[in-house]
Design a protein around this nucleic acid. Sequence first.
DNA 1: AATATTTATGCAATCGATTGCACAATTCTG
DNA 2: CAGAATTGTGCAATCGATTGCATAAATATT
Lengths: 341, 341
Amino acid sequence: MQKKSEPTIHDIARELKISASTVSRALQHNPRISVKTREKILAMADTIGYRPNVLASNLRNKKSNTIGIVVPLINRYFFSAVISGVEDVAFSAGYTVVISQSNDLANKEISIAHSMFSNRVDGLIISIAMEPTNFEHLKAFRKKNIPLVFFDRVVPEIDTNKIVVDDFMGGFRVTQHLIDQGYQRIGHMAGPQNLITYSDRKNGYKEALEKNGIPFDESLVVTNSLTAGDGVNAIQHLMNLPWPPDAIFCGNDTTALSSMIYLRDKGIRIPEEVGIVGFSNEPFSRVVSPSISTIAQPGFVMGQKAAELILNQIAHKDKTFTTMVMPTELIIRESSNRRKV
Amino acid sequence: MQKKSEPTIHDIARELKISASTVSRALQHNPRISVKTREKILAMADTIGYRPNVLASNLRNKKSNTIGIVVPLINRYFFSAVISGVEDVAFSAGYTVVISQSNDLANKEISIAHSMFSNRVDGLIISIAMEPTNFEHLKAFRKKNIPLVFFDRVVPEIDTNKIVVDDFMGGFRVTQHLIDQGYQRIGHMAGPQNLITYSDRKNGYKEALEKNGIPFDESLVVTNSLTAGDGVNAIQHLMNLPWPPDAIFCGNDTTALSSMIYLRDKGIRIPEEVGIVGFSNEPFSRVVSPSISTIAQPGFVMGQKAAELILNQIAHKDKTFTTMVMPTELIIRESSNRRKV
DNA sequence: AATATTTATGCAATCGATTGCACAATTCTG
DNA sequence: CAGAATTGTGCAATCGATTGCATAAATATT
């Protein structure tokens, strides 16, 4: 056998004086091939260093056995937990998971989506970036009937499977807790209101105020992208109001942390003078001093369920979709625990 | 045109009464195709909703335009920074980056490597899991001359490109700093000694002791997998010695944090009674109280350089390899700053 | 032993994009 | 205007694995 860069099934077939289709079937454990023939084929494959070419079989089968997952940032605890949940279920089902991160940038997300579209992912699981787009890059998946699942940050106008946490109830619970702690003027750092994740949290906040007869004051709400820097600017702004708040419901733990550092530097005591609650239960929230009250989201389980949804969509091409709502959990720690009992 | 599940270049060609090869060349912007013909083709492609099939072109070109990257854990700051650096360079060069995490498990890493091997990644960038293996799954890449770059945790016996931080000097600097702070009995939480990342750090520790005339005491070294739980067990063990240490050099910030929490619960003052230094500069180390001294690694830049190495290897099939050593930076914070002046 | 049934294998086409080489069409030059 | 050079396009093969249908080989039945 002459020097050839990569052995193929044809090389195995030639060596054994059989046909390539027999080789292929044997490698696939097809019961129509005898055990004896199969063992000869496997041995020859090993001898010549045969390596399956998945590109070829994927093209023939019109299936890549790949699920794409796009998250805003991989090093955020919640998103990495969701990824681990997806991987858990997808790997068990024989799928490769392709992870990409948009860094919360719209054009990055568009580029990633196009790449996954052309690479023929069998399905896409995505939490969209904060920057708004017209979502044509995601509508293309629906048009070609490629399975699509949104998680956490969803696009309401695209009809497909979705899995979210109860952001409304999360915002409501945080605000109710702060009211129960005797805080009377509660501010809110809200994420971009074009994402219903954040508008739901704000709506929960407003509902809790209303239920407790506290008038909603728009000047106590700051809308930003919830970065650490945005948190510093926002807390500065809020504390410089003529009548500053005595508690803040922050849209995520990152801005909660920024607020706490700022307040500590100003000599303002937490939770005695100002209460702080975040969202998403980043690992640091437990270990900082004072520890940060927050809302926990079931990331890993959400990932598992998202993977189950997409696998089901791939297998059955369902035309009916569901939106799963996962419960959140209020975790009370030092930063908002004024009434220690 | 009859209903067909996916339009191909043949459909475009049929509609325009030209050949498919012209369509292909036009879509590739081949200068041999006139602008007029190309515009007609692009318009028809848009009209019929044509989507390139990358599976087919990858098979034909024997190239997947994909770089695989395998890290132990994606939510570790250092690894996510490296990933971002790789993405930055690889995307610009037209490559897709496929990210996988081994969760520090050997069999998971083997499974991932096999999948990437069959999927014909054009190159693999990897930081190996803590669990030891015989590395046959990685040697296979070298055998097929598939570009391979190790970063941080490397396999010395595999001859290929590597990029590491100076772990020896990191360990040396930490230990020298603790000695300069007047600590006299310095313990060390070392990672698995089969990985030279951790054996280098320990060697740096030992060298600093020797340089300062302090005898090395094996009982002050605990070897484990550097998880949070391992950290608790190790600090407990060290503090229960007949003659406990007055400072600890922890193999990572996770175990440094575990140690701090344990000591705080025991009412032991940090850094007055016991000094703590970690490694890897996790974001939480800056914000906990006391803030944790640590070693910073240039993750993003390392990722960029790893990507450059692999792209170069892909382009030139070099037979000579290099090991790049990146400097570390000692960041002194509260946890080891006993002598404030 | 002849026939029927079951098991095992082979041929040829498919998947969809790319490209070398040949040739057609157009433009340039003497 | 004729020949040479350049531009533009088509044919057919390739990439490597899979699989429907036909047929050969082996086994079971009468």
